[in-house]
Each structure stands twice: as C-alpha cells, then as structure tokens.
C-alpha cells in the first residue's frame, strides 16, 4: 500500500465511529498497542518537546527505507503517534518528502496538530520530513 492508500484505510476505520468518545477510545487503544520504544533511545537527541506532552522519535535508514519508532508520555498523543508511524514508517525518503497528509483532517483530529496545541505532534511530523530530507540528500 502507498501512503495515500494507508491514509484512506485510516479514514475508513474512523468512519465507523458514531461519536467523539468512540474515536478517542480507539486512539487510546492504538496508543496502548504502539510497538514498545527502546528505552535507550529516550534521550534528549530524540525528544521532541511540547509544552503539553512529550514525544520521542527514533529513525533508522536501511536499504533505502526509513523506519520510525516513536513514543509519547500521553496516551492519546501516543495513539496519534501510532497513526503517523503507520503512515510514514517503512517508506522511501522520496515518498515521505512528497506526501500530502490529509487523514488527520478527515478523521477530525486536526485540533491535535494545531501549532497552538504544543503537544509535539506537529513538530514530530516536521521532524519525520526533515529526517527524510536528510536521508534523501545522502542517497
């Protein structure tokens, strides 16, 4: 699946929920099922600090593919982090740099990414693109 197909899949998953409570409960579930983050990478280098919640993002690059693992101290943030990892991880730098991210808006979580909510998510998305740009220039 390409990035847009995954985004469409996420939008479809969220479409089944009737109200905000169910959407957030699903996010909480996603947050809980996020792959464990290697504690050794919980360092300032990989920390994206928000005022409200913290996010750690660790990239690795092998055979032209970027893999991201991530973590947050808040569970709902972690759920959104899980979605971003699902969309961006396992991609080539070119795919990430060229991606148009629309699923957040479509599933009604845009407020969680607004610059005034300093929860680290917007910074995380930026950081993912920056890593992709850096790896791309190395290729």
């Amino acid at each position: 699946m390409n990035i847009n197909e995954i985004q469409d899949q996420i939008v479809e998953e969220f479409a089944q929920f009737g109200d905000w409570m169910e959407r957030y409960e699903y996010l909480i579930d996603l947050g809980r099922s996020l792959a464990p983050f290697d504690e050794r990478h919980k360092t300032p280098e990989y920390l994206i600090e928000g005022c409200q919640s913290k996010v750690w993002l660790y990239p690795s690059f092998e055979n032209g593919i970027i893999t991201f693992s991530a973590e947050s101290d808040a569970l709902i943030t972690r759920g959104i982090v899980a979605l971003l990892v699902r969309v961006f991880s396992g991609r080539t730098p070119a795919e990430i740099v060229g991606a148009n991210i629309y699923f957040i808006e479509k599933i009604g979580l845009r407020e969680n990414l607004s610059p005034t909510r300093s929860n680290g998510l917007l910074a995380m998305m930026k950081q993912m693109r920056l890593y992709a740009l850096a790896y791309k220039s190395k290729q």
Partner: peptide, 13 residues
C-alpha cells in the same frame, strides 16, 4: 497515572 493532557482533552470534549 493518567497524563494531564489526556484528561484535559477528554474534559474539553
């Protein structure tokens, strides 16, 4: 052990 941001988001809703 609930994170303040999680709680705040649900209360906001």
């Amino acid at each position: 052990q609930i994170h303040q941001y999680d709680a705040g988001m649900i209360l906001d809703k």
